[in-house]
Design a protein around this nucleic acid. Sequence first.
DNA 1: ACTAAATGCAGACTATAGTCCGTGGAGCGG
DNA 2: CCGCTCCACGGACTATAGTCTGCATTTAGT
Lengths: 83, 83
Amino acid sequence: MEERAFGSVMQELRKGKGLSQEELAFRCGLDRTYISLLERSLRVPTIVTLFKVSVVLEIRPEEFIARMNVQDRNYGEGSHLDQ
Amino acid sequence: MEERAFGSVMQELRKGKGLSQEELAFRCGLDRTYISLLERSLRVPTIVTLFKVSVVLEIRPEEFIARMNVQDRNYGEGSHLDQ
DNA sequence: ACTAAATGCAGACTATAGTCCGTGGAGCGG
DNA sequence: CCGCTCCACGGACTATAGTCTGCATTTAGT
């Protein structure tokens, strides 16, 4: 199905923004332990959760999904990964 | 959150392929009544369900999500909205 | 009018998304 | 060593995704 896990993409984006799991959870209105479960791929989010996380991580949800499909595509040239 | 419902996009794609709810459900490995619930936005799918439906409807999941964003959503001064 | 396909919908389920408590361990600065 | 932050993890929840069965209604064809 998905080539790359949702949680892996989320963790990468979270660390890229220098957020702790707890801080991300708070800003998303989700539970701290649930973010942990997501990153370890022990839960599958609904698309509503995808949208919530995308807002906080400042990425378009479709871009988030796109990153799950392909490992190497020249994402960004570091354009929106920095900050 | 989403401007356009998941179910609305799914129904449009389903009809575009001339499939009944039952046929779509069968090909997705989902229940017929659940497809009905999704189209009426009485349920929110997980991303796994998004992927299943996308395969059958022959659309990339990120494109599916993108079609939910008909209205503009602003994530921080258009830094990654372009492209 | 009759038939059949397609869908809405209700109810009672099962599986899992998501919460809320806590504990313990790894890492790090003082 | 001590305190602090971050995170993995457990257990016991609550909410909701998703199934299954059955029936009623609508729509289109003949």
